[in-house]
Amino acid sequence: WVPTKREEKYGVAFYNYDARGADELSLQIGDTVHILETYEGWYRGYTLRKKSKKGIFPASYIHLKE
């Protein structure tokens, strides 16, 4: 896992994603996520609506905010 280059990196989910394991994070369309790390097509972070739950999710489900 590699920390993100920018201190504040955010994105928005444009697909729903159902977590398949305890380390994964479920997403709903429109969720804003804070991205902490990246690795081979995956991000690690949390949604702003539930900051206490961190997990991994596919990068392809996220539109990055500039």
Rank of each mutant, 00 (worst) to 15 (best):
W1R: 08
W1C: 10
V2P: 08
V2S: 08
V2L: 10
V2N: 11
P3A: 05
P3L: 01
P3E: 09
P3D: 08
P3Y: 03
T4V: 14
T4Y: 07
K5Y: 08
K5R: 12
K5Q: 10
K5G: 13
K5V: 09
R6M: 11
R6Y: 11
R6C: 15
R6T: 12
E7D: 12
E7F: 13
E7V: 11
E7R: 11
E7G: 15
E8W: 11
E8Q: 11
E8I: 11
K9F: 09
K9P: 03
K9S: 14
Y10L: 07
G11Y: 04
G11R: 03
V12G: 02
V12W: 08
V12H: 05
V12I: 12
V12R: 06
V12L: 05
A13P: 02
A13G: 02
A13N: 00
F14M: 15
F14L: 15
F14P: 00
F14N: 07
F14K: 15
Y15M: 15
Y15N: 14
Y15V: 15
Y15I: 15
N16P: 12
N16L: 05
N16M: 07
N16F: 07
Y17I: 02
Y17G: 01
Y17W: 08
Y17M: 03
Y17C: 07
Y17T: 00
D18Q: 14
D18W: 08
D18V: 14
D18L: 12
A19W: 01
A19V: 01
R20T: 09
G21C: 13
G21D: 09
G21T: 14
G21Y: 07
G21Q: 09
G21E: 09
A22S: 11
A22K: 12
D23S: 07
D23G: 12
D23P: 04
E24K: 03
E24I: 04
E24T: 03
E24V: 03
L25G: 00
L25E: 00
L25W: 04
S26Y: 04
S26F: 04
S26H: 04
L27G: 00
L27E: 00
L27T: 00
Q28R: 15
Q28G: 05
I29V: 12
I29Q: 07
G30N: 04
G30A: 01
G30H: 03
G30R: 03
G30E: 01
D31L: 05
D31N: 03
T32C: 15
T32Q: 12
T32W: 15
V33P: 00
H34V: 15
H34S: 05
H34C: 15
I35G: 01
I35A: 00
L36K: 03
L36N: 04
L36C: 15
L36S: 05
L36T: 08
E37M: 08
E37H: 07
T38K: 15
Y39D: 03
Y39F: 14
Y39N: 13
Y39G: 06
Y39H: 09
E40F: 07
E40C: 12
G41W: 05
G41L: 06
G41D: 08
W42R: 00
W42I: 01
W42E: 00
W42D: 00
W42L: 02
R44E: 05
R44I: 06
G45S: 06
Y46A: 04
Y46P: 02
Y46D: 02
Y46H: 14
T47S: 09
T47A: 12
T47V: 15
L48A: 07
L48V: 09
L48E: 10
R49G: 14
R49I: 09
R49V: 09
R49S: 13
R49H: 13
K50V: 11
K50G: 09
K51M: 09
K51Q: 10
S52N: 12
S52C: 14
S52T: 11
S52F: 12
K53S: 07
K53H: 10
K53I: 12
K53G: 06
K54S: 10
G55F: 02
G55P: 00
G55A: 02
G55T: 03
I56Q: 04
I56P: 02
I56N: 04
F57L: 02
F57Q: 02
F57C: 04
F57M: 02
F57N: 01
P58H: 03
P58Q: 04
P58E: 03
P58M: 05
A59I: 09
A59W: 04
A59T: 06
S60R: 14
S60P: 05
S60E: 12
Y61S: 10
Y61F: 09
Y61I: 15
I62N: 01
I62T: 01
I62D: 01
H63F: 10
H63K: 14
H63S: 10
H63A: 10
L64I: 12
L64Q: 03
K65I: 15
K65S: 13
E66K: 13
E66L: 13
E66Q: 12
